[in-house]
């Protein structure tokens, strides 16, 4: 393992994490829900009657965040270092996988871990391991 200190951004990472945590906390304290983005998208798709409007508003806030950001500062870099065609299998796997797992990075690795949920700990370990493994195969075995 070799740490790339030139790319390490501890302060913005920590501050960004604090904002994510604040958003998740506000949503839990005031709306009584888990800020799990895959679950929120799914309940909108399935038009579940429970809290549909407030869920849509939460996702609306998430959606316009870059517009609000760009009022004050240029948007942070976006760099996709892989072939665009990979977005299709990636999206499909993330869609099916997060439904079977009832959660993604936000629901399990942030909210679930903060709730000290065993399910979320297992989920986080599984998707971290398979993400690291997948990237390892692509970058260091296949040499893409």
């Amino acid at each position: 393992m070799q740490i790339d200190w030139s790319q390490f951004t501890p302060w913005t990472a920590l501050a960004g994490g604090l904002l994510i945590g604040l958003g998740a906390s506000l949503w839990a304290l005031c709306n009584g829900r888990i800020a799990g983005i895959s679950g929120l998208i799914a309940s909108l798709l399935e038009r579940q009657s429970d809290g549909l409007a407030e869920k849509a508003v939460f996702l609306g806030g998430l959606l316009v965040a870059p517009l609000v950001w760009s009022l004050w500062a240029p948007l942070p870099a976006f760099n996709l270092p892989v072939a665009e065609i990979l977005l299709i299998p990636a999206g499909l796997l993330v869609g099916v996988g997060t439904r079977y797992a009832s959660g993604c990075t936000s629901g399990h690795a942030v909210c679930g871990l903060a709730r000290l949920s065993l399910r979320s700990l297992v989920a986080t370990l599984c998707f971290m391991a398979s993400a690291v493994g997948t990237l390892y195969v692509i970058r260091h075995v296949l040499g893409g």
């Binding site: 870059p66 760009s70 976006f78 299998p89 990636a90 796997l93 936000s106 993400a131 997948t134």
Partner: peptide, 29 residues
């Protein structure tokens, strides 16, 4: 289901580095 789903999700995440939250936040940018 939890384990199988999480493993699938991780493969997808590892392919491009995009998970659902950022996917929503990037839609309008």
């Amino acid at each position: 289901r939890l384990i199988f789903g999480s493993l699938l999700f991780g493969i997808g995440w590892g392919l491009t580095g995009i998970c659902p939250g950022p996917a929503v936040s990037l839609l309008l940018s």
